[in-house]
């Protein structure tokens, strides 16, 4: 990783990764690698997930019981751990999304003051 790439990287909030994971799982259960890929893809490659930090985030979510984990087989018939959103997690997703909107709105107002 060159320093140039490092500088261009946008740094995210810790809680935001959790939010993205929850949102990704809204569509259905997925395994860790797929989650990372989905986030990158859906953000048009803007968000490069340092894939290692995915796992502490996933375990945090498991500990809070926002997601659950189960064994399954992936698309190429390999076994993998699948993560699934729980009911609590679904509720929390709404809460976190609204918090994020508020935050983003506040920053936007500061950056581009109206009038």
């Amino acid at each position: 990783m060159s320093t140039k790439e490092e500088r261009e990287r946008i740094e995210l909030l810790q809680g935001t990764l959790d939010l993205l994971i929850l949102r990704t799982l809204l569509r259905g259960p997925a395994h860790g690698h797929a989650i990372a890929k989905t986030i990158e893809f859906n953000s048009d490659e803007v968000l490069q997930v340092e894939q290692g930090s995915l796992y502490p985030a996933l375990h945090r979510l498991i500990k809070r019981r926002w997601i659950s984990v189960e064994e399954g087989t992936s698309e190429n018939n390999r076994r993998a751990k699948f993560y699934r959103l729980t009911r609590k997690g679904r509720k929390q997703l709404k809460v976190e999304t609204s918090k994020w909107d508020k935050l983003a709105g506040a920053i936007a107002r500061i950056l581009r003051p109206a009038g």
Partner: peptide, 24 residues
């Protein structure tokens, strides 16, 4: 109120101090 204490390069965003950031 953060749940776990992940040290190192991950830092918590503080609402009053937007200068502190995190790497994902």
């Amino acid at each position: 109120g953060c749940n776990s204490c992940i040290e190192g390069r991950i830092q918590r965003f503080d609402e009053n101090f937007p200068g502190r950031r995190e790497k994902v």
